[in-house]
Amino acid sequence: MPKILKIHNLEKTYTSGSKKLTVLNDISFEIEKGETFSIVGPSGSGKTTLLGLCAGLDKPNSGGVELCGVPLQDMNEDQRALMRNKEVGFIFQNFQLLPTLSALENVSVPLELQGAKNAAKIATDLLDKVGLTDRLHHYPSQLSGGEQQRVALARAFSNQPSILFADEPTGNLDEETGEKVIQLLFELNREAGTTLVIVTHDLDLANRTQQILRLKGGKVLTNERTV
């Protein structure tokens, strides 16, 4: 299978005052196209930082990230934004919906940024799939946490991404709602044939993916396929 994401010798450090803090050190792994993949580890192990670097939200100090065959470290911010808009979808722990936009408008954003003409139609279909047909014109403040995360799910798939990054997608939800969202996520993912990368604390959730990368102290502890 072709590799959609290649990470090699990644290093990320932050400077706080005169102190240099190494968050990620010598990280290397690869993800196959269409695979489901999870990154697990305790708090402060560098999971979210790694996800950000994989998605081109930040630049590493050294090492390389190759997404969809293109090295991200050689691109500027706008080129990376264009890449994200075409190839990447996101789901965040705290939903990250734009408060001024309705559910329908939030889902349309990635398509509208591309200048797509049929954004509303695609967004309506996706919201229908996640069971929010009757919530199209509601604003985030008028939706429950579970509903907000379903809007975020629809948005993540709206630009038909090649790879989807989910950062603790159930972190802000109760168990029951979280389970529903996860089922929906895997279902949509299967339908679209998207590569899925999940950052989570939840080992049960991680076990539902095909491969698990364990981090500790900024280093890869293990990288193994699930049974």
Binding site: A55, L57, E77, D78, A81, L82, M83, R84, N85, K86, V88, F90, Q96, L98, V109, P110, L113, Q114, R155, N159
Partner: peptide
């Protein structure tokens, strides 16, 4: 927050 979110979703600086 809003701008970053838009940028995450693929908006460029000009937009």
């Amino acid at each position: 927050r809003e701008s970053v979110l838009l940028r995450t979703l693929g908006a460029n600086s000009k937009q």
